[in-house]
Amino acid sequence: MRSPGRASIAARHLRTDRWWLSPAATAAGLLAFVAYSTWRAFANAHYYAAPYVSPFYSPCLADNCVPMRGGPNWALFGSWWGLSPALLILVFPLGFRLTCYYYRKAYYRSFWAAPPACAVAEPHRAYTGETRFPLLLQNLHRYFFYAALPVAGILTYDTALTFRDSHYAWGHAGLGTLVFLVNIVLIWAYTLSCHSCRHIVGGRLRHFSKHPVRYRLWTWVGRLNRRHMQLAWASLISVAVCDLYVYLLATGAFDDPRFF
Protein backbone atom coordinates (compact mmCIF):
# COMPACT_ATOMS: atom_id res chain seq x y z
CA MET A 1 0.00 0.00 0.00
CA ARG A 2 3.00 2.25 0.35
CA SER A 3 4.32 1.47 -3.10
CA PRO A 4 6.05 4.27 -4.98
CA GLY A 5 3.64 6.51 -6.82
CA ARG A 6 0.71 5.94 -4.49
CA ALA A 7 -0.55 8.65 -2.14
CA SER A 8 2.01 8.91 0.65
CA ILE A 9 -0.12 8.03 3.68
CA ALA A 10 1.70 6.36 6.54
CA ALA A 11 -1.34 4.94 8.35
CA ARG A 12 -2.28 1.29 7.68
CA HIS A 13 -5.85 2.45 7.40
CA LEU A 14 -7.96 5.51 8.06
CA ARG A 15 -11.14 3.75 9.09
CA THR A 16 -12.90 5.30 12.04
CA ASP A 17 -15.53 2.62 12.64
CA ARG A 18 -15.04 -0.48 14.83
CA TRP A 19 -13.74 -2.60 11.94
CA TRP A 20 -11.98 -4.95 14.37
CA LEU A 21 -15.20 -6.02 16.05
CA SER A 22 -16.37 -8.42 13.34
CA PRO A 23 -13.08 -10.39 12.95
CA ALA A 24 -12.65 -10.45 16.74
CA ALA A 25 -16.17 -11.78 17.31
CA THR A 26 -15.71 -14.33 14.53
CA ALA A 27 -12.42 -15.52 16.01
CA ALA A 28 -13.96 -15.80 19.47
CA GLY A 29 -16.95 -17.76 18.16
CA LEU A 30 -14.88 -20.16 16.10
CA LEU A 31 -12.34 -20.69 18.89
CA ALA A 32 -15.12 -21.42 21.37
CA PHE A 33 -16.57 -24.03 19.04
CA VAL A 34 -13.16 -25.58 18.31
CA ALA A 35 -12.40 -25.84 22.05
CA TYR A 36 -15.81 -27.35 22.86
CA SER A 37 -15.86 -29.80 19.95
CA THR A 38 -12.28 -30.93 20.57
CA TRP A 39 -13.11 -31.71 24.19
CA ARG A 40 -16.27 -33.58 23.21
CA ALA A 41 -14.73 -35.42 20.27
CA PHE A 42 -11.84 -36.78 22.37
CA ALA A 43 -13.96 -37.44 25.47
CA ASN A 44 -15.41 -40.70 24.08
CA ALA A 45 -18.10 -40.69 26.75
CA HIS A 46 -21.60 -39.38 27.51
CA TYR A 47 -22.70 -39.26 23.89
CA TYR A 48 -25.78 -41.46 24.16
CA ALA A 49 -28.83 -41.01 26.33
CA ALA A 50 -31.66 -43.08 24.88
CA PRO A 51 -33.19 -42.16 22.51
CA TYR A 52 -30.74 -39.35 21.73
CA VAL A 53 -27.31 -39.75 20.16
CA SER A 54 -24.90 -36.85 19.90
CA PRO A 55 -24.37 -35.63 16.32
CA PHE A 56 -20.61 -35.71 17.02
CA TYR A 57 -20.75 -39.51 17.30
CA SER A 58 -23.15 -40.37 14.52
CA PRO A 59 -22.71 -42.62 12.66
CA CYS A 60 -20.56 -44.49 15.18
CA LEU A 61 -18.09 -46.42 13.05
CA ALA A 62 -16.06 -48.54 15.51
CA ASP A 63 -16.56 -51.53 17.79
CA ASN A 64 -15.92 -49.46 20.88
CA CYS A 65 -19.15 -47.48 20.40
CA VAL A 66 -21.93 -47.64 22.96
CA PRO A 67 -24.66 -49.99 21.60
CA MET A 68 -27.62 -47.84 20.53
CA ARG A 69 -30.82 -49.78 19.94
CA GLY A 70 -31.90 -49.07 16.39
CA GLY A 71 -29.30 -46.35 16.38
CA PRO A 72 -26.44 -45.46 14.06
CA ASN A 73 -24.00 -48.21 15.09
CA TRP A 74 -21.99 -49.31 12.07
CA ALA A 75 -18.68 -50.89 13.10
CA LEU A 76 -16.99 -50.29 9.78
CA PHE A 77 -13.59 -49.93 11.45
CA GLY A 78 -13.97 -53.00 13.66
CA SER A 79 -12.14 -53.40 16.93
CA TRP A 80 -8.69 -52.09 15.98
CA TRP A 81 -9.81 -48.50 16.37
CA GLY A 82 -9.04 -47.60 19.96
CA LEU A 83 -9.54 -43.84 19.92
CA SER A 84 -12.78 -41.93 20.15
CA PRO A 85 -15.12 -42.99 17.29
CA ALA A 86 -16.12 -39.34 16.86
CA LEU A 87 -12.78 -38.71 15.20
CA LEU A 88 -13.69 -41.08 12.36
CA ILE A 89 -16.80 -39.20 11.30
CA LEU A 90 -16.00 -35.61 12.28
CA VAL A 91 -13.36 -35.45 9.54
CA PHE A 92 -16.13 -35.00 6.98
CA PRO A 93 -18.15 -32.15 8.51
CA LEU A 94 -14.86 -30.56 9.54
CA GLY A 95 -13.58 -30.71 5.96
CA PHE A 96 -16.90 -29.42 4.65
CA ARG A 97 -16.80 -26.41 6.93
CA LEU A 98 -13.07 -25.78 6.59
CA THR A 99 -13.33 -25.53 2.80
CA CYS A 100 -16.70 -23.73 2.86
CA TYR A 101 -16.62 -20.39 1.03
CA TYR A 102 -18.14 -18.58 4.00
CA TYR A 103 -15.80 -20.07 6.61
CA ARG A 104 -12.84 -19.35 4.36
CA LYS A 105 -13.77 -15.68 4.41
CA ALA A 106 -14.27 -15.88 8.17
CA TYR A 107 -10.93 -17.42 9.07
CA TYR A 108 -8.89 -15.65 6.42
CA ARG A 109 -10.10 -12.40 7.93
CA SER A 110 -10.15 -13.22 11.61
CA PHE A 111 -7.18 -15.56 12.02
CA TRP A 112 -4.90 -14.84 9.08
CA ALA A 113 -5.70 -11.13 8.74
CA ALA A 114 -5.68 -11.40 4.95
CA PRO A 115 -7.20 -8.85 5.16
CA PRO A 116 -8.48 -8.21 8.71
CA ALA A 117 -11.15 -5.90 7.26
CA CYS A 118 -11.79 -4.08 4.01
CA ALA A 119 -9.24 -1.35 3.30
CA VAL A 120 -7.22 -2.31 6.37
CA ALA A 121 -3.72 -3.35 5.35
CA GLU A 122 -2.75 -6.94 5.99
CA PRO A 123 0.50 -7.59 7.85
CA HIS A 124 2.00 -10.12 5.40
CA ARG A 125 4.91 -9.34 3.14
CA ALA A 126 3.82 -11.65 0.35
CA TYR A 127 0.51 -13.14 -0.70
CA THR A 128 -0.26 -16.01 -3.06
CA GLY A 129 -3.85 -16.70 -2.05
CA GLU A 130 -5.23 -20.06 -3.08
CA THR A 131 -2.81 -20.60 -5.93
CA ARG A 132 -0.52 -23.07 -4.14
CA PHE A 133 -0.55 -26.09 -1.87
CA PRO A 134 -2.03 -26.36 0.74
CA LEU A 135 -4.69 -23.73 0.01
CA LEU A 136 -5.11 -25.15 -3.47
CA LEU A 137 -6.92 -27.98 -1.67
CA GLN A 138 -9.81 -25.60 -1.00
CA ASN A 139 -10.94 -26.69 -4.45
CA LEU A 140 -11.96 -30.02 -2.89
CA HIS A 141 -14.99 -28.34 -1.32
CA ARG A 142 -17.49 -30.10 -3.57
CA TYR A 143 -16.21 -33.52 -2.46
CA PHE A 144 -16.80 -32.60 1.15
CA PHE A 145 -20.24 -31.43 0.09
CA TYR A 146 -20.91 -34.87 -1.40
CA ALA A 147 -19.73 -36.45 1.89
CA ALA A 148 -21.88 -34.07 3.92
CA LEU A 149 -25.07 -35.33 2.25
CA PRO A 150 -25.05 -38.88 3.72
CA VAL A 151 -23.92 -37.50 7.08
CA ALA A 152 -26.93 -35.16 7.07
CA GLY A 153 -29.06 -38.15 6.04
CA ILE A 154 -27.88 -40.14 9.06
CA LEU A 155 -28.50 -37.19 11.37
CA THR A 156 -32.03 -37.06 9.93
CA TYR A 157 -32.43 -40.72 10.86
CA ASP A 158 -31.18 -39.92 14.38
CA THR A 159 -33.78 -37.17 14.59
CA ALA A 160 -36.49 -39.63 13.61
CA LEU A 161 -35.29 -41.90 16.44
CA THR A 162 -35.92 -39.11 18.94
CA PHE A 163 -39.65 -39.73 18.51
CA ARG A 164 -39.17 -42.68 20.86
CA ASP A 165 -39.00 -42.63 24.63
CA SER A 166 -36.14 -43.95 26.77
CA HIS A 167 -37.67 -47.45 26.53
CA TYR A 168 -37.61 -47.24 22.73
CA ALA A 169 -41.39 -47.02 22.35
CA TRP A 170 -42.42 -44.94 19.32
CA GLY A 171 -44.81 -42.03 19.25
CA HIS A 172 -43.23 -39.91 21.97
CA ALA A 173 -41.39 -36.62 22.01
CA GLY A 174 -39.50 -34.54 24.50
CA LEU A 175 -37.60 -31.28 24.59
CA GLY A 176 -34.66 -33.14 23.03
CA THR A 177 -36.83 -34.02 20.02
CA LEU A 178 -37.38 -30.31 19.46
CA VAL A 179 -33.65 -29.57 19.83
CA PHE A 180 -32.82 -32.31 17.30
CA LEU A 181 -35.51 -31.11 14.88
CA VAL A 182 -34.20 -27.55 14.88
CA ASN A 183 -30.67 -28.86 14.44
CA ILE A 184 -31.45 -31.08 11.47
CA VAL A 185 -33.39 -28.33 9.70
CA LEU A 186 -30.41 -26.00 10.12
CA ILE A 187 -27.92 -28.69 9.06
CA TRP A 188 -29.85 -29.35 5.84
CA ALA A 189 -30.35 -25.65 5.17
CA TYR A 190 -26.62 -24.99 5.61
CA THR A 191 -25.64 -28.01 3.49
CA LEU A 192 -28.01 -27.19 0.64
CA SER A 193 -27.16 -23.48 0.66
CA CYS A 194 -23.53 -24.35 -0.13
CA HIS A 195 -22.00 -22.60 -3.12
CA SER A 196 -20.81 -25.93 -4.56
CA CYS A 197 -24.36 -27.27 -4.30
CA ARG A 198 -25.61 -24.19 -6.13
CA HIS A 199 -23.10 -24.83 -8.88
CA ILE A 200 -23.83 -28.55 -9.14
CA VAL A 201 -27.61 -28.26 -9.27
CA GLY A 202 -27.59 -25.66 -12.03
CA GLY A 203 -24.87 -23.04 -11.80
CA ARG A 204 -22.63 -24.85 -14.24
CA LEU A 205 -25.26 -24.65 -17.00
CA ARG A 206 -25.06 -22.07 -19.72
CA HIS A 207 -28.67 -22.34 -20.89
CA PHE A 208 -31.12 -22.41 -18.02
CA SER A 209 -34.00 -22.36 -20.50
CA LYS A 210 -33.07 -25.86 -21.68
CA HIS A 211 -33.09 -27.26 -18.13
CA PRO A 212 -36.19 -25.85 -16.37
CA VAL A 213 -36.07 -28.25 -13.43
CA ARG A 214 -32.43 -27.58 -12.67
CA TYR A 215 -33.07 -23.86 -13.15
CA ARG A 216 -35.83 -24.02 -10.55
CA LEU A 217 -33.55 -25.92 -8.17
CA TRP A 218 -30.79 -23.38 -8.78
CA THR A 219 -33.10 -20.48 -7.89
CA TRP A 220 -34.17 -22.25 -4.67
CA VAL A 221 -30.61 -22.98 -3.66
CA GLY A 222 -29.71 -19.41 -4.61
CA ARG A 223 -32.31 -18.07 -2.21
CA LEU A 224 -30.89 -20.22 0.58
CA ASN A 225 -27.37 -19.30 -0.48
CA ARG A 226 -28.03 -15.63 0.33
CA ARG A 227 -28.28 -16.76 3.98
CA HIS A 228 -25.25 -19.05 3.88
CA MET A 229 -23.34 -17.12 6.52
CA GLN A 230 -26.27 -17.02 8.94
CA LEU A 231 -26.96 -20.70 8.33
CA ALA A 232 -23.29 -21.56 8.88
CA TRP A 233 -23.39 -19.96 12.31
CA ALA A 234 -26.86 -21.19 13.24
CA SER A 235 -26.04 -24.79 12.34
CA LEU A 236 -22.67 -24.60 14.10
CA ILE A 237 -24.38 -23.45 17.29
CA SER A 238 -27.26 -25.90 16.96
CA VAL A 239 -24.99 -28.91 16.55
CA ALA A 240 -23.06 -27.88 19.67
CA VAL A 241 -26.30 -27.33 21.61
CA CYS A 242 -27.55 -30.74 20.47
CA ASP A 243 -24.38 -32.41 21.70
CA LEU A 244 -24.47 -30.49 24.97
CA TYR A 245 -28.07 -31.54 25.50
CA VAL A 246 -27.14 -35.21 25.11
CA TYR A 247 -24.12 -34.72 27.38
CA LEU A 248 -26.26 -33.19 30.12
CA LEU A 249 -28.80 -36.03 29.87
CA ALA A 250 -26.10 -38.69 29.81
CA THR A 251 -24.35 -37.28 32.87
CA GLY A 252 -27.66 -37.07 34.72
CA ALA A 253 -27.55 -33.30 35.06
CA PHE A 254 -31.28 -33.18 34.30
CA ASP A 255 -34.10 -35.29 32.87
CA ASP A 256 -35.48 -34.77 29.42
CA PRO A 257 -38.85 -32.98 29.77
CA ARG A 258 -41.37 -35.12 27.88
CA PHE A 259 -44.22 -33.61 25.84
CA PHE A 260 -46.08 -36.85 25.17
Binding site: Y101, K105, Y108, C118, A119, T131
Partner: peptide
Protein backbone atom coordinates in the same frame (compact mmCIF):
# COMPACT_ATOMS: atom_id res chain seq x y z
CA UNK B 1 -6.05 -13.77 -14.84
CA UNK B 2 -5.12 -14.99 -11.36
CA UNK B 3 -8.45 -16.22 -10.02
CA UNK B 4 -6.56 -18.38 -7.52
CA UNK B 5 -5.32 -15.24 -5.75
CA UNK B 6 -8.87 -14.39 -4.73
CA UNK B 7 -9.55 -15.66 -1.23
CA UNK B 8 -13.21 -14.62 -1.35
CA UNK B 9 -13.08 -12.24 1.59
CA UNK B 10 -15.88 -10.26 -0.06
CA UNK B 11 -14.51 -6.73 0.22
CA UNK B 12 -15.31 -6.18 -3.45
CA UNK B 13 -18.96 -6.97 -2.74
CA UNK B 14 -18.98 -4.74 0.35
CA UNK B 15 -17.85 -1.64 -1.52
Amino acid sequence: HGLGYCNITKCCTEV
